[in-house]
């Protein structure tokens, strides 16, 4: 265990833990857009930055992203120092210029008193804030179907060559993790479309309810050794089937005991 100081309060933390986890455990609200427990931290949104110092740093301090900074003994952390707040305001202001229609950006900016951007709105600005959550989640799944392409201000998230991604299994993890709900997808008539690729949805053998995509089911069979027949019926029908077989056991047991 390591003892650190957050906003004047002494706090215990596990060795190797990232600062953001410790700060949030203290119920201190610090904003973050790219942080998600499911994926590796990447530090692209810069909102979770905090000011750190130590007693022996002679009054010198530095600004670090708390999602990527492992706790160190005797660290003194301020999560809302004037400079940090100023920095967050600027970043949110920049976000608002890029994605003025995003609700989460509007809400976060409003919390820091910004309702209108100080800058010029980016022409054709969209709601993608380049947090890399989608690419990281895809990497975690082992698919790597999408990635960041191009450079600088023109950077976008896209499948290779802009074509329907060969490696995508249509699991929707990217769309679900996206903080601004920018990634579009659509389920219609037993088909799912995402990233320009169409997938067949598995139908329950009994009731016909649509579950996950055939590609994802096969991927789970292949990568995680899950029996293929598990994916043949939906969860509702599985419970009914379980009830039936349990019922038979119960009746048989009752008859034996008679």
């Amino acid at each position: 265990m390591v003892t650190i100081q957050i906003n004047g309060k002494l706090v215990q933390a596990e060795k190797g833990e990232m600062l953001i986890a410790v700060i949030r455990r203290q119920r201190i609200d610090i904003p973050a857009l790219c942080h998600h427990d499911a994926v590796e931290p990447c530090g692209s949104c810069r909102l979770c930055m905090v000011e750190i110092t130590k007693k022996d740093w002679d009054g010198w301090s530095k600004f670090v992203t708390s999602c990527l900074y492992p706790v160190e003994p005797d660290l003194i952390v301020s999560t809302h120092s004037p400079r940090v707040v100023e920095l967050r305001k600027t970043i949110l202001d920049l976000y608002l210029a890029r994605s003025p229609k995003s609700e989460i950006i509007q809400r976060m900016a409003a919390e820091y008193g910004i309702t209108q951007t100080s800058y010029q709105e980016v022409p054709d600005g969209d709601n993608c804030i380049m947090c890399y959550a989608c690419t990281r989640v895809c990497e975690e799944l082992g698919c790597n179907a999408i990635s960041a392409v191009q450079r600088g201000h023109k950077k976008i998230i896209a499948p290779p060559l802009g074509e329907p991604p060969v490696d995508c299994v249509g699991c929707l993890s990217c769309a679900n993790i996206c903080p601004t709900h920018f990634i579009e997808w659509n389920d219609d008539n037993g088909k799912r479309t995402i990233w320009g690729k169409q997938f067949e949805l598995v139908s329950c053998k009994i009731c016909g309810k649509k579950t996950i995509t055939r590609d994802f089911a096969e991927y789970l069979v292949r990568k995680r050794n899950i029996p293929a027949n598990y994916f043949e019926i939906c969860d509702d029908c599985k419970r009914t089937e379980l009830t039936k077989s349990m019922g038979k056991i119960v009746i048989a047991a009752q008859e034996i005991s008679k």
Partner: peptide, 22 residues
């Protein structure tokens, strides 16, 4: 720099762009 920024973090990607625009 706007052109050569990798585009990963916001201050550099959006900030330098706005600085250039101004």
């Amino acid at each position: 720099l706007v052109y050569e920024s990798c585009g990963k973090c916001v201050p550099c990607r959006e900030g330098l762009y706005q600085l250039y625009t101004l």
